[in-house]
Amino acid sequence: MSLSGVCVTAVESRPAGGGTSRAVRATGELGTSQGTNKRPLGARVKAFVALTKPRIIELLLITTVPVMFLAEQGVPDLRLVLLTCLGGYLSAGGANALNMYIDRDIDALMERTAQRPLVTGMVSPRECLAFGITLAVVSTLLFGLTVNWLSAWLSLGALLFYVVVYTMILKRRTSQNIVWGGIAGCLPVLIGWSAVTNSMSWAPVILFLVMFFWTPPHYWPLSMKVKDDYARVGVPMLPVIASNRVVARQIVLYSWAMVIVSLLLTPLGYTGWFYTSVALVTGGFWLWEAHGLQSRAKGGAVGAKLKEMRLFHWSITYVSLLFVAVAVDPFLR
């Protein structure tokens, strides 16, 4: 059955006298501008901010700003940093809003996304679409006119890749969706470098690859925990179509690739002893957690005993510490 068929069934099978289903709200039958405009202003503003997924953007900026320090080999111009962060926030926010617009049908049926503004009716689909497009245009112009056009095109490319390639093409069609779709989340490191140098180099490419290999073992543990949600809406995340043992093996392979690539910066002369030490320690702990997850999966652990979220939480700590080391290292060489 198609995803649209699932939504129709969810609406039509609603018991008489019950409340309106989330699926109806998500497809816009309640989320009209007439209804949403009656909401309190503060709640409306909060809803539009939620469309940008601020917590995810924080992670993107964590990878952008340190690369600017590395490119400058010191403290970059504060104005440039602020403009790059603002442009990055608006661009990623626009991409996230457009993602919610496209995925509003399945968001209505997943517990993890049940409180998103389109599902609750706080924002209408038309408003969300206009908001996302506006942020995309403004962010591109902001980058081009105040930073440089290389950064502008990279930012726009990341947005289009996330919205079109990942959300519209890959997400509902292949278990490799997060692998290739994750490229959009790797581009901020290139943007951070280009904002300072208006050029490219091997350093941002290496960090791009670190993020590329980081994304699957970061997201798959979360997908393992909420795989029933994805299965319910027909999104073929790897944990939905493969056993925990297979997923854990893939996590280990990507983890090793990530750690190895992270150590290439120093031999090429971009970083020194401090970054290398942090990369070795944090990478070593990551591999310990990844192999631990694989061991538990091989042993048949399920539910709370699988402890898959340990790696998910550590993955955020890892990338934060690694990129802090990227920023600090130039001052210790």
Rank of each mutant, 00 (worst) to 15 (best):
L222N: 06
R310Q: 13
L268H: 09
A195Y: 02
F274K: 04
V261I: 12
M237T: 07
T197K: 13
P188H: 10
L265W: 06
Y230Q: 02
V261H: 01
R249A: 15
M258L: 06
L265C: 05
M211Q: 08
M258F: 04
K298V: 15
F213K: 06
V205T: 09
P236V: 07
A279R: 02
S223W: 08
G299T: 11
A301Q: 09
R232E: 05
D228T: 14
P217T: 11
T276Y: 09
S277K: 00
A203P: 00
V240R: 02
M200V: 09
V302T: 15
E308S: 15
S295D: 12
K307V: 13
D229G: 09
D228F: 15
V259M: 04
V261R: 00
P188G: 07
V246E: 14
V278G: 04
L190K: 05
W214E: 01
K305Y: 15
L264K: 10
S194N: 08
Y254K: 02
G300E: 11
S201E: 13
T266R: 10
Q250R: 10
L238V: 09
D228I: 11
I251H: 02
I260H: 03
L238T: 08
T266H: 09
S199V: 12
F274Y: 15
A248I: 05
Y254G: 02
K305P: 00
K298M: 15
M237V: 04
L265M: 08
W193F: 11
M211V: 13
I206E: 02
I251Q: 01
L287G: 00
W273M: 11
M258E: 02
W193I: 07
W214V: 03
R296K: 14
V240F: 04
T215R: 03
W256K: 03
R296A: 13
W202C: 11
V302A: 14
G272L: 07
M224P: 01
H218I: 07
N244Q: 01
P221N: 04
R296E: 09
L253K: 14
D228R: 14
V278M: 11
P267L: 08
T282F: 15
T282K: 06
V226P: 04
A301K: 13
A195Q: 00
W220V: 04
G192V: 00
D228V: 13
V240N: 01
E308M: 14
V246D: 12
V210H: 03
F274C: 03
D229Q: 04
P267F: 09
V278L: 12
V247Y: 02
L293S: 08
P236I: 05
S295E: 14
S255D: 06
S199R: 09
V281W: 13
H218K: 06
G299S: 14
N244H: 08
V205K: 02
G192I: 00
Q250H: 13
Y230E: 00
H218C: 05
W256A: 03
F213V: 06
G299E: 10
L190W: 08
P188Y: 08
V240C: 01
V196D: 03
L207K: 05
S262L: 07
G269N: 08
G272K: 05
V226M: 12
F212R: 07
A279M: 06
K307N: 14
K307G: 10
I241E: 02
P188F: 10
S262P: 00
R245E: 14
M200A: 11
A231D: 04
S243G: 12
R249H: 15
A304W: 12
V261K: 00
W256D: 01
V235K: 02
F212H: 09
T276D: 00
S194D: 07
V210P: 01
